[in-house]
């Protein structure tokens, strides 16, 4: 039983990161119907920004409290990553907004590969560690061990998602996003600044990925190709929940977290987890392509 709760906590921790990244996929798809295959790599870039900024701050501003250091790093990473995402949208996707959808998807794949290989060429393949913002403390309650880091990841992610959900449902920006998503041809006639809303969506998606990146970096090493695997898992999360659906992405993220943690428990080796995740994806696409919370769209003749 304790073992099980332990695993659930691990699944929530992993799932939180997937959910945060899945949100970026889903928001962009929701608004311009583009599978932004570069998003996993935007997440990767966010961890590198955190690495450089965090390391620099830690060495120049000795004695800064861990919390402050973390917050500054996080803000820098969110800012830089959103800027990158907005630039990518402006220069790679926007010219293709009214082109066949396939062109934009291929472009996204290309941008993702570009980010990976560019990082590889400039920074190198070696894994790196983010500076330690917090000293790890482990607590044991009723035989279940958990760390402060784990709690930070789970709680911060949940908060971010709560805020995002509120923003999309309650604010003008959220309303405008939904308007553009509904009909990008009519929305401008209603006074919705489509370009700006799309940029904002990319920026929000990227900064949430940056939150995920900073949280992830507190636990794992980072490398130029990390965005592929994590990006894919997050993407599957988004599809499982119903791509274009924000709550679906969160749900999907946690589901994939459980898949990742519990696959080795059930199957002989953890190397099967990709197989399981992609098989789920394949089955889902065949039988329920619009995901758990999504709705089917009919085609007009």
């Amino acid at each position: 039983m304790q073992g099980f709760i332990q695993q659930v906590l691990n699944a929530l921790q992993v799932g939180s990161v997937y959910a945060l990244i899945a949100l970026g996929y889903t928001m962009v798809y929701g608004i311009i119907r583009l599978i932004n295959f570069a998003h996993g790599d935007i997440f990767m870039v966010s961890t590198y920004v955190a690495f450089f900024v965090g390391t620099a701050l830690a060495s120049y501003l000795l004695g800064l409290s861990g919390l402050l250091l973390f917050v500054l790093t996080l803000i820098a990473s969110m800012f830089a990553t959103s800027l990158l995402a907005v630039l990518i949208e402006r220069f790679a996707y926007k010219p293709l907004r009214y082109a066949p959808r396939v062109s934009a998807v291929i472009t996204a794949l290309g941008v993702g590969l570009f980010l990976e290989n560019f990082t590889l060429a400039t920074i190198g393949p070696d894994p790196r560690f983010l500076p330690r913002f917090f000293t790890v403390q482990t607590y044991t309650v009723g035989g279940v061990a958990f760390s402060n880091i784990q709690m930070i990841i789970i709680v911060v992610s949940a908060l971010v998602m709560l805020v995002l959900d509120t923003v999309v449902r309650r604010t003008m920006v959220g309303m405008a996003m939904r308007a553009v998503s509904w009909d990008k041809f009519t929305a401008p006639l209603m006074g919705v600044p489509v370009d700006r809303i799309i940029s904002i969506t990319f920026a929000i998606g990227a900064s949430i990925a940056a939150v995920g990146g900073c949280l992830y970096g507190m636990v794992y090493t980072i490398d130029p190709y990390m965005g592929i695997r994590i990006g894919w898992w997050a993407f599957i999360s988004a599809v499982v929940g119903g791509i274009g659906n924000i709550r679906g992405a969160m749900l999907g993220g946690y589901i994939l977290g459980f898949v990742e943690i519990f696959t080795p428990v059930i199957l002989p080796a953890s190397s099967y987890r990709d197989f399981v995740a992609f098989s789920i994806l394949l089955m889902l696409l065949i039988f329920r392509p619009y995901g758990i919370l999504g709705r089917p769209v009919a085609q007009k003749v």
């Binding site: 790679a92 010219p95 293709l96 082109a99 066949p100 062109s103 934009a104 291929i106 472009t107 794949l109 290309g110 941008v111 993702g112 590969l113 570009f114 290989n117 560019f118 590889l120 060429a121």
Partner: peptide, 18 residues
């Protein structure tokens, strides 16, 4: 750097000559 060329080419192609 060679591996940067392919993806870049793909993006440029899509934008200018899909």
């Amino acid at each position: 750097w060679r591996w940067v060329v392919g993806p870049l080419l793909l993006v440029l192609l899509m934008i200018f000559r899909p």
